[in-house]
Amino acid sequence: MESLFATIDAAYMSKLLVILLQGVLTSLRIFAITLVIAVPLGFLVSFAKKSKYKIVSVPINIYILIMRGTPLLLQILIVYFGPYYVFRLSYDRFAAIIIAFVLNYAAYFAEIFRGGIESMPVGQYEAAGALGFTKAQTFFRIILPQVVKRILPASANEVITLVKDTALAQTIGVAELFALSSKQASFKTSVIPLFVAGIFYFVLNWIVTAAFAYFEKKLDYYK
């Protein structure tokens, strides 16, 4: 094992940290943009899935089935290379990563939201209706806040997975945290860069976990 740690000194460590921080930035960009788009999209998808029009609900069901039924890795490859084989169109790889991640995560979020919305007692809709709230008011004032509380634990799982899934971006050459750390591991033939990357992922997810714990506590004022 000793040789695994060879050629790593303090000077290199500081360089390594700088490199990996660049990777963290890329990973966080993938993470944040995916989240900002996939969460609202997931809501739309969860409504579309419940649509009474088959022309809407059937494609949405197929979409969710495919997104949850195939590896994200494969989806990334198809999203990036697919357009070329069909339309002779090649495009930005970071954009491809965002598209693939958003499509995949929106499907998962949609199912979480659907579960949350369906778990709401019908009495809440009836009470809101009897009090004269419009459908939109009922959803945004009565249902949604309660759904958010209900889906928080499941969403935390999904968000934590997203942090780690950003490592898949290297498949199409996006230099995220894991990619940069494995390049450095190759350069030094050492696992140290991978360990350090692991610490970064751990810290990122510790922050995510703490953030969710904070929000869960904030919503703990009612049962």
Partner: peptide, 17 residues
């Protein structure tokens, strides 16, 4: 130029990335 940038000494990332 496309490469797997973990292939020293042909093409790789150095300690300045």
């Amino acid at each position: 130029l496309g490469l797997d940038d973990s292939f020293p000494p042909m093409g790789f990332r150095n300690d300045d990335n």
